[in-house]
């Protein structure tokens, strides 16, 4: 996010503005499904932004980030199930529960490095998965339907899809700004220094463990917020929202968008989820003239296209989408 009219900044601003205008377009074009799709994209982008804080800036390869989505989501779902609908209760509980969970996981996992760190975060997330799957009172494996969205004071009404969209968008933009301020502050320099060379950071006098732990808790709390939003969006929570493949999706969004870029994960989330929707459609459209019915069936296997695409990004565009956009700028100047 350096200043000036670089391609990267122009595209970033264009995306941010487009997301603000999206409900208008969806209404005028009569494509209301777009509003639902993009609400979901924005919520998952918020989760990816929080993961990027520890993964992209801090070099902490957490493979259990979906746990916080689950904890935030289940906090809302369980409270609703018990008849507590006030958002002023639900949301703070969701954030606090996520923060506590992050504190415990972080305190243990940050003492390890590399593969062990990945495995410990994964193990804790899977543990959370099996715990919620075993909560018979709250639906167990089948999940829990939420009959009423979080209640705030009028005129704020989360049941209104447009209002809910803008609440999510505002929280996403706020989080991106928060992360951007954080990573450039003294605190952020410690986090980035520790990603770069943790031993040296300790040698020059930083107790890096406690800084990383605070960073881990901030990221977990932000992700818990995404979970509270997701529960309200789908009016339903199930153990599926904290399964480990979800953590994998979040990592893909971060890598695809560009690590260590505050808006990168937003690009990654939009790219991944739009491709997920569009690829089956594109396969069908392009394949039908040649293969007829077979193309329709082939469209179910859109992941065959998706996999190699991700591989190409990892192999040839290390900086993800943000990295590519920065390269465009560099070429123009040359």
């Amino acid at each position: 996010m350096t200043g000036g009219f670089t391609i990267r900044n122009i595209v970033t601003v264009a995306l941010l503005v487009a997301l603000v205008l999206l409900p208008l377009y969806a209404e005028l074009a009569g494509q209301r499904f777009l509003l639902t799709l993009f609400t979901r994209i924005i919520i998952l982008a918020l989760a990816a932004v929080s993961l990027n804080l520890i993964l992209g800036y801090g070099g902490m390869m957490s493979f259990g980030h979906a746990a916080y989505i689950g904890i935030g989501g289940y906090a809302v779902g369980m409270l609703a199930h018990e008849g507590i609908f006030s958002g002023f209760v639900q949301w703070p509980v969701a954030l606090l529960a996520s923060a506590l969970f992050a504190l415990v996981i972080g305190a243990l996992s940050l003492r390890t490095r590399g593969v062990y760190f990945i495995m410990i975060t994964l193990a804790f997330a899977q543990m959370a998965y099996y715990i919620v799957a075993g909560l018979a009172r709250y639906g167990g494996d089948d999940g829990l339907t939420i009959y009423k969205r979080s209640q705030f004071v009028a005129p704020l009404d989360l049941s209104n899809k447009v209002q809910f969209y803008y609440v999510c968008l505002a929280l996403l933009y706020g989080s991106i700004y928060l992360v951007w301020r954080l990573v450039n502050s003294r605190f952020g320099m410690v986090i980035q220094g520790s990603r770069s060379n943790d031993m040296r950071m300790r040698a020059i006098g930083f107790p890096t463990y406690r800084y990383k732990l605070v960073c881990f808790v901030i990221a977990g709390t932000l992700c818990g917020l995404a979970g509270a939003l997701l529960a309200n969006h789908t009016d339903f929570v199930s153990p599926g929202i904290l399964y480990w493949t979800r953590s994998g999706d979040l990592i893909i969004m971060v890598v695809l968008g560009g690590m260590a870029s505050a808006v990168g994960p937003l690009f990654g989330a939009v790219a991944l989820l739009v491709l997920e929707e569009a690829l089956p459609f594109v396969i069908k459209l392009l394949g039908t003239p040649f293969f007829g019915e077979a193309a329709a069936r082939a469209s179910e296997y859109w992941q065959i296209i998706m996999g190699p695409l991700l591989l190409l990004v990892v192999l040839f565009a290390r900086g993800g989408i943000m990295g590519l956009l920065a390269k465009v700028r560099a070429k123009e100047r040359a």
Binding site: R181, S185, M189, G193, G205
Partner: peptide
């Protein structure tokens, strides 16, 4: 810190001796 600038490297070392770094907002 090879992925940071030369100045960032030394500034981090200066920061290490300038009190705690739980300062979350101002651009370092």
């Amino acid at each position: 810190f090879l992925d940071l600038s030369v100045l960032d490297n030394v500034a981090l070392a200066v920061q290490a001796h300038a009190g705690h770094s739980f300062r979350f907002w101002r651009d370092a």
